[in-house]
């Protein structure tokens, strides 16, 4: 059995990937929000806004945000579920979770729990959550199938999984522009702003290694979800997959 996986364009031992990804996010945590704004020209805010609007989350719901980092989705979910609801912001990376905690406190958002966890081993009972979200995190997970199966397990019947992730564009023009931008401009900006070229080189490579829309849709269905559809955003540079547990 092959015990290697990809880390960007490199093949690495499966057990090493988690530490390598941790190193990337330890390095970028303090500048994560700033870099997101710069690299996406602010579009990540619109993508997340659409994700929240698509969630059908209601007052009183229980939400788990995986790889929630600096807490953009958790803040929006907290407002939607109200006092009677429950939002958990989780991340595998302690530095990112620390940034998230700081961010929420600075914004006066309370009532969100913080849990450091690995998406492949979710420490929650079956049928617990109304919604599980993961934004720009799934591509960093070593065993995506296992993580998706775990997400399915902890969702209630009728619960909704939201995966916001970089994806593949069909537009040849956009693809050429995007390739140039991500392999030339992004690492340079990473170097200038965050003093970390390698992490943003990894970001560009990991996007290319991530499954395309249809492949990910089938992975979600294979994990046990009854329905899955995706919506392309910004020409398919990003896609929102929505799975429903029946």
């Amino acid at each position: 059995m092959d015990n290697t996986t990809h880390f960007g364009f490199k093949d690495v031992a499966t057990e090493d990937k988690q530490n390598l990804v941790r190193g990337v996010f330890d390095s970028v945590a303090s500048k994560y929000d700033l870099m997101n704004d710069v690299l996406s020209f602010g579009a990540h805010r619109l993508w997340k806004r659409y994700t929240i609007a698509s969630s059908n989350v209601k007052t009183g719901d229980k939400i788990l945000d995986i790889a929630g980092g600096t807490g953009d989705l958790a803040i929006a979910f907290r407002k939607k579920v109200g006092e009677s609801g429950h939002v958990i912001l989780s991340d595998i990376n302690a530095a990112m979770l620390g940034e998230g905690r700081k961010n929420l406190i600075n914004k006066g958002i309370f009532g969100v729990d913080f849990v450091q966890l690995n998406a492949q081993f979710l420490p929650f009972a079956d049928n617990t959550f109304d919604c599980v979200s993961i934004a720009f995190g799934l591509r960093n997970v070593t065993d995506k199938d296992q993580a998706l199966a775990e997400m399915h397990r902890i969702l209630k019947p009728g619960g909704c999984l939201l995966i916001l992730e970089f994806s593949k564009t069909d537009s040849e023009f956009l693809k050429k522009f995007y390739d140039f931008y991500s392999f030339n401009v992004m690492p340079t900006l990473g170097d200038l702003i965050a003093d970390d070229k390698e992490s943003y080189q990894y970001l560009a490579e990991s996007i290319r290694k991530h499954p395309d829309q249809e492949t990910l849709k089938n992975m979600v269905l294979d994990a046990g979800f009854g329905f899955c559809e995706y919506h392309n955003l910004s020409g398919g540079i990003v896609a929102l997959h929505k799975g429903i547990k029946v």
Binding site: K156, G226, V246
Partner: peptide
């Protein structure tokens, strides 16, 4: 899809 007191 009518489930969990919502419609998808």
């Amino acid at each position: 899809i009518c489930t969990n007191n919502r419609i998808f």
